[in-house]
Design a protein around this nucleic acid. Structure first.
Length: 695
RNA sequence: GCGCGGUUAGCUCAGUUGGUAGAGCAACUCAUUUACACUGAGAAGGUCGGGGGUUCGAGCCCCUCACCGCGCACCA
């Protein structure tokens, strides 16, 4: 028996060497796997954002995906797990801009090319750092196929999709209301905004013969149209097109009456003025009635010359001063101080979104969504769990056009050129006088094409072999951002769904269920935990009791419990080796049957993606049955005189131990491989590619 | 406004097609060198949010109420 079994299992001493052995074996690459393998099993790894270290959520996805990969690799599948790294557009730029701010710099004072280069260096450094961390977590992915979202091949694919959308009439450049973040100075998609409930003042202002109610008096300078519901009896005397003179903030103006059914008669006074440039609802009304659009607030959130004496002021500071002036002029009828409403905010900085009209590229989503809905409904792609499928369908059925332009440098440049009002699509300039669109793509536009782009669509061997992929395993929080877009764009480009199953995991929270955050100081670093308790313990802690799609709480005490479990397995091995390892091929009888039944059960759970149940059942079998009962009962037998009985029991124990190591390998790859390599068996192969104990 | 969840042991959560409730942690009583102290044995702890229904049988299916949470959406 190797000496190491005389001491407790030392995970940190063993793990790095084992990973090296796996990687050097070449078996992460399906091309090198032994035996005949016809059926592919493919997971495209959700590429981690290369802008920091791995967090607990990354550890969770590595664990779940690695469990599937190791399971299917042992079941003789052509198992491909393709890793990647994400430049993560806006996300990374925000991280980098925070760094700049800390050193007193600003992106707005930099040359775009310099900023780009700095962020690239930053991203590449993080990328290689994270690759090391993925290795520490045991990820058995094929590094030879690793992709980066800015690789030339990806960019080429993205450009061809943009071109095709254009050719198919699904792309348009429109001046529409976009979600503008005044801090980051870019437009954002609806998904990149959040809603916060605020309590503000609601101002009732005299507007000629009317009283209008508004929460935003600072936008009202240019308001020359007053709108009411056509059926509102209170205002029946006014006809659409009527004009009247009134004294307004900066002097007398002429206003015109507009009737529109969008007006809510219950709200405020049932009358409002419109600011089409800075409000979606107002924009729609203005469009319906062919009214003019005027910008009141600039891109940095300051008032424009239309505001007269207030021009140049920040809108936040301006509001109080404007109200003061309105009060002096006797135009404020009353102020309701308890007006509670929801305002859209930037999901990164929580600053209020300033709606602005800006020409951007939009994708018409309804045709793409319709095809995705069909694919989901007829089972081409199955979403786990059912409730997530419902949520996804609901979103797809109510989809809106997608703004894919971003005013940031860190991303894939949009291949479009303009000359006056004319636009042409293409990577290269159409000729003299054409100006390139300075914007970049929403990062999700490119990552939405990740599965087929990484597999070398349309002609690559990998594409033919591995597409559609088998499982997409990712966070439930990016169901719309990413999964929905991958399904739509995958179907659009390849005619097939990009994956057959979607497995969604929830968020990893701290032991008390709170969201982990640096400011709260409750962040659990998977890398630290792995170093302290071993990666296997971390993986078990992440998987047991964690049901698909629901958030989980991670308690270090739970991980510690699985560290003890690893040691239990270690000592089981010690016991079996001390008493002489039998010939597992000679094993039979009730204990063997019992184990085989467990193997069947565990396999079944894994096929259903019930990894939490598979892991828990293994835990109980190993501890409560194998260790506590079978080994205890074996003691007298093994010390007894009956050599036939003794040999039979030794065979049974060998059979169970070997089988247990195989079943546990997907969950606890390091210790099982370590033990496997210490058993005096004949084969030199790795446990990683041993055959699974059931069909 | 539209949509989706959750409520099970002191805490955090599991519970596969309905068949006498489970884990980790915490707490309790013993054991003290045993393959393993990163241990063993034992005991304790829940009318599964309330109410109603279906069923021979409900934590699980149906209805309803209460509380908590989440997502989406152009309400001034």
């Amino acid at each position: 028996m190797p000496e190491k079994f005389l001491k407790p299992y030392n995970a940190s001493a063993a793990e790095a060497d084992i990973y090296k052995k796996w990687e050097e074996s070449g078996y992460f690459n399906p091309d090198n796997l032994p035996g005949e393998r016809s059926e592919p099993f493919t997971i495209i790894m959700p590429p981690p954002n290369a802008n920091g270290s791995l967090h607990a959520g990354h550890a969770l996805f590595v664990t779940i995906q690695d469990i599937m990969m190791r399971f299917e690799r042992m079941r003789s599948k052509k198992a491909l797990w393709l890793p990647g790294a994400d430049h993560a557009g806006f996300e990374t730029q925000v991280v980098y801009e925070r760094q700049l701010e800390k050193s007193g710099r600003s992106r707005f004072e930099m040359q775009p090319e310099d900023l780009y280069k700095e962020i690239m260096d930053f991203t590449l450094a993080n990328k290689s750092f994270m690759e090391g961390q993925l290795r520490q977590l045991g990820a058995s992915c094929d590094w030879s196929r690793e992709m980066f979202t800015l690789d030339e091949r990806v960019v080429k694919t993205v450009y061809s999709t943009f071109q095709k959308l254009h050719d198919d009439g699904l792309l348009y450049r429109g001046s529409r209301i976009v979600n503008w973040c005044p801090k980051h100075q870019t437009s954002l998609s609806n998904l990149e905004t959040e809603r916060e409930t605020r309590t503000d003042n609601f101002y009732y202002l005299k507007y000629g013969p009317f009283t209008i109610a508004t929460a935003r008096p600072e936008t009202k300078f240019g308001d020359k149209y007053v709108v009411m519901h056509p059926e509102d009896p209170r205002y029946a005397q006014y006809k659409a097109g009527d004009t009247f003179e009134l004294e307004w903030i900066n002097g007398p103006i002429t206003a015109t009456v507009v009737k529109d059914e969008a007006i809510d008669m219950e709200l405020g006074t049932g009358v409002m003025t419109i600011t089409p440039w800075h409000d979606q609802a107002d924009f729609d009304i203005a469009q319906r009635h062919n009214l003019p659009f005027d910008q009141v607030i600039d891109w940095r959130g300051k008032l424009l010359p239309v505001a007269g004496e207030f021009a140049g002021m920040n809108i936040k500071d301006a509001r109080a001063k404007i109200v003061e002036k309105l009060q002096e002029k006797g135009l404020v009828e009353k102020i309701d101080e308890k007006y509670t409403h929801e305002v859209p905010v930037c999901y990164k900085c929580s600053r209020e979104i300033e709606p602005q009209v800006r020409p951007q590229w939009f994708v018409k989503m309804q045709p793409l969504a319709a095809r995705a809905i069909t694919a989901i409904k007829n089972g081409e792609v199955k979403v786990l769990t059912e409730q997530h499928e419902k949520v996804l369908l609901h979103w797809l059925e109510n989809i809106q056009d997608w703004n894919i332009s971003r005013q940031i440098i860190w991303g894939i440049p949009i291949p479009a050129w303009s000359k006056g009002d004319e636009w042409k699509i293409g990577a290269d300039s159409p000729g003299d006088g054409w100006v390139r669109d300075p914007d970049t793509f929403d990062t999700w536009f490119s990552s939405g094409q990740w599965p087929f782009a990484t597999l070398q669509f349309p002609d690559g061997t990998d594409f033919k072999t591995y597409y559609p992929t088998t499982v997409m395993e990712t966070g439930a929080d990016i169901l719309f951002f990413w999964v929905a877009r991958m399904i739509m764009l995958g179907l659009y480009r390849t005619g097939e769904v990009p994956f057959k199953y979607v497995y969604l995991h929830g968020m990893v929270r701290d032991a008390k269920g709170q969201k982990m955050s640096k400011s709260k100081g409750n962040v659990i670093s998977p890398i630290d935990v792995s170093s302290q308790y071993g990666t296997d313990a971390l993986r078990m802690g992440l998987v047991v009791g964690n049901t698909p799609g629901t958030d989980m709480n991670l308690d270090p005490k739970k991980i510690e419990a699985y560290k003890k479990f690893a040691n239990k397995l270690w000592n089981i091995t010690r016991f079996v080796l001390e008493n002489g390892l039998g010939d597992h091929t000679q094993a039979g009888g009730a204990l063997v049957e019992e184990f085989d039944a467990l193997a069947q059960d565990v396999t079944h759970e894994m096929e259903l993606f019930h990894f939490h149940l598979a892991a828990e059942k293994l835990y109980h079998y190993v501890w409560d049955r194998f260790a506590s009962e079978i080994l205890e009962d074996s003691k007298t037998l093994l010390k007894g005189e009956d050599s036939a009985q003794k040999a039979a029991r030794q065979s049974e124990l060998a059979y169970i131990l070997r089988g247990t190591l195989k079943l546990l390998h997907p969950f606890m790859p390091f210790i099982t491989e370590e033990i496997w390599g210490s058993l005096p068996h004949n084969t030199q192969t790795l446990l990683m590619v041993e055959s699974w104990p059931t069909k």
